[in-house]
Nucleic acid binder design. Structure first.
Lengths: 162, 162
DNA sequence: GAGATTATGTCAGTACTATTGACGTAATTT
DNA sequence: AAATTACGTCAATAGTACTGACATAATCTC
């Protein structure tokens, strides 16, 4: 059962290898832009949830605002992300990807998506759902609400260029 | 199908959340020792493959020897790992966990294993195998040989105290 | 309206993990 | 004897993260 001392070393190790390789393709591409994995994460979530505020982004990423600052500033300076004053609350900054930002987010996601497709290649919808359910169950329960499982909720925002 | 632009954003995002939370429990415990995630990885593989050489460890972790040096030195200084001169080739250093090292490796793996068990709780052997196969398929093909899938191969080495 | 709170930004210092490049030593191979 | 290998170490740098402190503008509360 690949278990010693009652510990599931097999999946623990597989998870490490799988995640490392999963992030390796975008990591290499990011180097060309002078970006790192942190930029990828920010860009990913801004692209996925256009119009989210800085506070919301911090809550999703679970990092401090000081950590976000550098990365977000670089993404703004390089015209990948724009900030708009919040319509309801003018203290807030809503974050949107630019066309350039969306293109990069897509380019970074492409090899990851390809890898997933290859890993599921002989699998049907059942297997796919099972993997999704497993991954979701690995997330801390109190955070599962943050996850978009189905098609992305575009939050009814404009989604256009800014 | 939770796919936009042909990109599997759902699993990409789930994988990020899942891995982050998966590593969070040992990360917290490691802080008590003044250790980081790098120490966990080294200790894990030394524990899993007792007697592996420094070069083999570098090859598994895919880091440079300079990166390994600090971490390994600390694990040796704190009596979690010992080095033995290679029996065949005296230039080599075989790495073994001490009892203390094995205890820590086990303690760090416990919450991770618990999380996996919980995630698979209503699943049978089929689902487990499927998740294992998915994770393995996510790993770069040329590296799959390094992975111990079944019960750990203890490499025929003593496995005792050193 | 005054004061408290909130959202965001920024400065300073520190820690951890990783890198490249260079050099040294002992052991093995050719 | 010379080249190569396994390992260790020194130095400099980068990327991501942290805590703590302070500033500003906007909103909320009394």
């Amino acid at each position: 059962m690949s278990v010693e001392d009652g510990i599931d070393f097999a999946i623990i190790e597989l998870f490490f290898f799988a995640y490392r390789d999963f992030t390796s393709d975008p990591d290499q591409m990011l180097a060309d832009y002078g970006f790192g994995r942190a930029h990828h994460r920010v860009l990913h979530f801004v692209n996925r949830r256009p119009g989210l505020t800085v506070a919301e982004l911090l809550d999703v990423l679970k990092i401090t605002k000081q950590s976000l600052a550098r990365v977000l500033k670089q993404l703004i300076d390089t015209d990948h992300v724009v900030q708009l004053q919040g319509p309801r609350d003018r203290r807030q900054r809503e974050l949107y990807p630019t066309a350039k930002g969306r293109a990069l987010a897509l380019a970074l996601a492409r090899p990851q998506s390809r890898r997933i497709r290859a890993a599921l290649e002989d699998s049907g919808a059942t297997e796919r759902t099972l993997v999704e359910r497993f991954l979701e169950a690995m997330v801390n329960p109190e955070l599962r609400a943050q996850i978009d499982v189905g098609s992305a909720k575009m939050s009814g925002k404009s989604h256009g260029e800014h």
